[in-house]
Amino acid sequence: MIKKFVIQICIFLIPVVIGYALVENYTRNLPLTPKIKSDYYKKNKEDIEVLVLGASQNRDAINPEFLSQKTLNIAFPDQDYYVSSRLLEQVGPTLPSLKTVIIPISYGHFETAPNQKDTWKNSMYRHYFGATVSDKFTYFKDNFLYISFPNYYSTKINEHKKGTTKVDCNVYGYNKNIERALFYTHNYDSLTIIKQPIHITPTIPHPEYVSQNVNKLEDILDFCTENKYKIILLETPTTKRFKEQRIPEVLHRKDSVLSMIIAKYNVQHIDANSNNDYNLKDHRDNNHLSTQGAEKFTKLLDKLIN
């Protein structure tokens, strides 16, 4: 009886397995930015000299097209120091020519909850860059993309099928499409834009997260020092309105940590935020640069690095 039961289940599951395999395969071949970055990474491993880590601010601010050295930008939304350190430890050694590592020092980085749980991006980093960023035991399911966030990937599959994919990447995986960017959708009309709420993280101070985040940043810096990588701590431009909304207490703590880091480590600190001359069209929204802004910023960064 039990044999019959197990066989019936196996027969029943065959279409499920085949169906899932097809969807998974389709997902893996979608021309998403991580895939383009991954292809660039695999083709240029030997020659990449600059590695960009961090969250969406770094992703949008640095377009490797305008840097003299071959650059891999693997900054992704919500990437905290914890994930950045794991990426650096695993991707760094695969890049024999790596000389410079760019790390963000943003307003919210130290007071954001360290992202150690099982987020869907673990599968993305694992599949595209071969890096396990989760602290937990790696399960069989972590090798699959679609199941990690079906809603997201289903939307991407549908867009791809309809030909409405909103990706306009260069070979480095920098997405030039700004159609969904806040300022673009409001036609850069400052009067409308000023009425939009500002999404600023953290909304309330979280001093309890600071020490954990600082420890992780120090892990990154120690790793860079050991491997003789040049370290650049980068503050990307934000709008005047964004700067006004920051909580002084959080800002003060960030500046204190920064002073401590600069005194302790041999780092280059680039502050493009304090006095920025970027206009509305240079921004996607209040704390992200647009394609135009990224070109301007990356060209400046190129001069500062060299």
Binding site: F12, V16, T119, W120, I147, P150, N151, S154
Partner: peptide, 19 residues
Amino acid sequence: RWSMYYFLIFAIIRYGRPQ
């Protein structure tokens, strides 16, 4: 019956959210 089960499995996989 089997179509209904497959529909439920499809919905679980497609509309499941991060745990």
